[in-house]
Nucleic acid binder design. Structure first.
Lengths: 260, 260
DNA sequence: AAACGCGTCTCATGATGCGGGACACAAGAT
DNA sequence: ATCTTGTGTCCCGCATCATGAGACGCGTTT
């Protein structure tokens, strides 16, 4: 994938993972040649890796079309990690925030050069569970950059800052300044920088080590999130973030009819 | 993992996946040497694989303890596959069944030699999201065996049928007969075969190809699920299963405040 | 019919992953 | 204090393993 650090010792593994990573952007079902194209591997290699992944349940192959999709092991380990993070407990809180603000609410984590929305409540193509958003042009991303853990705060590692709209911050210096502002004010704003007529406000969510692990965002139009009401939205978002922090900290506790 | 088919061409990948698989049974955080022990790999290899997985976000390493846990890519792809399967839409239905029957409800998928609970609403150690249950000693497992897809119906591949209680079916012939009965009646029963004083009833959930993809179970004590009421529970479970089938088939449709 | 695209498999080659071993560090045990 | 045991980390030569060209059969398109 990235031509970076890890020099040797793991080529096959990296390639296998990049096969899995295809499903992030590609549709839910990909053919063997799709995989070969997307990963830029030879068909033999892609095919062999896919078979290996199938044999361990990380992919599964449709009997009729012989196309691949993410397999039960992926769902299993994903659910496991979702629960180990305690994320199943936060959904009700997010719904409450969505209703209180009449906005779309997303919870995201950083994964490499992207903010990944783990729980999201919208159908619009820029929000919703599973989506990967750029770090420099979204409120979620700015929050995750502003309090990035040591080793991940390098803006140069983001590569060229692609413009999504004419308001997108494309100059690294401007981005640095913006991120400094986010750190000062405690929240990030995206005012039409990733798509026209959409305004997003995001705040950090801390883990037990007091490090920013997730970002919480409310999205709506500038008519709803007006300049005058930004403070109000920030307050609500932060209150929700604090509630999430408590939920994520607290030990396991479920009832029989809980299905978050 | 299994010493089966795939002869060559994928050793590194299989090993990397078996590193990930450690987290199924092990705790949420494992040290490098834990991984080496569980995978039966040399410490060098386990370490190198773990590093590779970290570099791609499939694992993450705690800065303080240098132990590993499942990483954001795992959560991301897991959530993606969870949504691609449409599973986020079924939780309310499961909750309703749980309330209607005053029982614990679990939805499971087959993964190799296990039934994996993808959504479960209980704290008891035999139920709940993420758990792996044997196929031969659970109602969920019997359902998944009874309508196994071609290539997975071989009971011999299950290995020795380990006894959980004195009622567990350990003879392959008995299991074959039991499975035949499940096919005939349309539901499976587990009456203290995996743990004393627990009775479970499971029914199949079909996908769009009319194949059994999931199993749905209600669990309680024999005092609740009495012999006389088994039919009633089966009916309710099947009704819920049908509702799930419709939900899983229907195209994407969410509202802003949905947080399944 | 011919030309494509696709999924699948084989096989010789050498690049790649392997693990013994070394080192540093920490926490008990003697 | 010194030894012991368990860690996490990294190097580096050897040979095992992954690699990709190519072949084959099968549909669909031209």
């Amino acid at each position: 994938m990235e031509k970076n650090g890890s020099p040797v010792g793991t080529q096959a593994v990296q390639r296998a993972m990049s096969v899995l990573a295809c499903f992030r952007d590609g549709g839910p079902m990909l053919s063997a040649s799709d995989l070969a194209r997307r990963t830029e591997l030879s068909t033999s290699t892609a095919h062999r890796l896919a078979r290996a992944l199938v044999s361990m349940g990380f992919l599964e192959q449709d009997a009729r079309t012989s196309r691949y999709r993410l397999g039960p092991s992926m769902t299993e380990l994903g659910q496991l990690s979702f629960h180990q993070r305690g994320l199943h407990r936060v959904a009700p809180e997010l719904g409450q925030l969505a209703r209180a603000t009449s906005a779309t609410v997303d919870l995201a984590i950083r994964n490499g050069r992207y903010a990944v929305i783990l729980i999201g409540g919208s159908v619009d193509p820029e929000s919703g569970t599973g989506l990967r958003r750029p770090l420099h042009s979204t409120a979620l991303g700015k929050v995750l950059l502003a309090w990035a853990p040591p080793g991940e705060e390098d803006l140069a590692a983001l590569g060229p800052l692609r413009a999504q709209t004419e308001r997108t911050i494309v100059d690294p210096c401007d981005l640095r300044a913006e991120i400094e502002r986010v750190r000062k004010t405690g929240y990030a704003l995206n005012d039409g920088e990733s798509s026209h007529g959409i305004r997003t406000l995001a705040v950090p969510v801390l883990d037990r080590a007091e490090q920013v692990r997730y970002a919480l965002a409310v999205r709506s139009t500038p008519e709803v999130i007006t300049d005058a009401r930004i403070g109000w939205f920030a307050m609500h978002a932060r209150a929700c973030a604090r509630a999430l922090e408590v939920l994520l900290l607290s030990p396991e506790e479920r009832r029989v009819t809980d299905f978050g």
